Structure formats: C-alpha cells, structure tokens
Simulated assay, not measured.
Amino acid sequence: MVTSILRPTVYHPVQRISTRILGSRWARPPAILATFLVSGLMHEVIYYYFSRAYPTWEVTWFFALHGICVTVEVAVKKALGGRWRFHRLVSGPLTVAFVGITGAWLFFPQVIRYGLDQRAISEYSILVQFLCERLQY
C-alpha cells in the first residue's frame, strides 16, 4: 500500500524532475532518497499524532539511512551489471539483521519512550475482551 502511494506521488515526480536536471543516468538516486525521506517524515507525523510529543527525528533518520543504503545498493548492482550477487540465503538474513539493528537503534526507541507499545497492547486487550463478551451471548 505504501509503495502504491509513494511511487506515483514522490518517486516518479522527483525522477522526472531529476532527469531534466541531471540526466537519466543520475535521476534515480534523488528519487529514491526523496521517497525514503517523505516516508520518514510521514512516520514522524504518525508518531506525533499518537504521542503528542515533539519529533526527535530518529524515525526520519532511520528512513534516510535506509534510503542511502538502497541508493548505494542500486548503484553497486548497476556497476556490477548483475555479474555478482549474494545468494538469497545470505542477502535475506543480512537485510533482516540490518533492518532489525537500525530499527532497534532509531525506529523503536520513540515507540517505547512514549509508551505507544503499552497503549497498543492495552487497546488490543480491550478489543479482545469486547469480542469475547459478544461471542458468549
């Protein structure tokens, strides 16, 4: 769902503008970075909505870091021309580890700091209790 929103609203327009300014060879990196940055800013808005605490920008940095890494990955793959790649059994766990480590470092601290995890668990338990009561009648 996020991809289907961000691709036409951020990625493609930035890529078109970048193509005019930088040429087609260099249009992709700004589009990738802009897409990740917008995603990070939107997550900051969501965190603000739930916590009513001013942004710490950790979440935006999480997405900026991932945007930079994806941009580098795309450039390296393009430079190598598909001649050399990690096997999925290597690249998959490396990706999960990278997301896990950076998530623990930059993404989840705000969730825990503002008690969003506890509130979500509490709300889900209320929902489960409500559904259990309704199913008994």
Rank of each mutant, 00 (worst) to 15 (best):
Y48W: 13
V90G: 02
R16S: 13
G67W: 05
G100E: 01
F98A: 06
P29T: 11
Q15A: 14
G23M: 06
F36I: 04
G92Y: 03
H66L: 14
M42C: 10
T102L: 03
W61V: 13
V96Y: 06
G67R: 09
L37I: 15
V70G: 02
Q15H: 15
Y54R: 11
T56N: 02
F36G: 08
I46H: 09
G67A: 11
G82S: 07
F63Q: 07
G103D: 00
R28Q: 15
Y48H: 08
P93Y: 03
R83D: 12
Y48I: 09
G103Y: 00
L37T: 14
V14C: 01
L33I: 06
P30F: 00
R83V: 06
L41G: 05
G100V: 05
A79D: 03
V70S: 01
F63W: 06
A104Y: 13
T19E: 10
P13E: 13
R88I: 14
W84M: 12
F36T: 01
I101G: 02
V72F: 02
T95D: 01
P55W: 10
L94H: 01
R85W: 02
H43A: 10
G92L: 05
F36N: 01
H12R: 08
G23A: 07
V10W: 08
T9S: 13
L94Q: 01
W26H: 11
V99H: 02
F86W: 14
H12S: 13
I46M: 15
W84P: 02
S24D: 15
G92K: 03
V45E: 09
G40R: 06
S39A: 14
K77S: 12
A79F: 11
E44W: 08
V99T: 02
A104L: 15
A53Q: 13
V90S: 00
V14E: 03
I68H: 06
A27Q: 12
P55R: 08
V72L: 09
G67N: 01
R83F: 13
S91I: 05
I46T: 08
L41P: 03
I21F: 05
V59K: 02
L41V: 09
T71S: 05
V96H: 00
V59P: 05
V90F: 10
L89N: 07
A31S: 08
F63G: 01
H66W: 11
L33N: 06
A34I: 04
P93H: 01
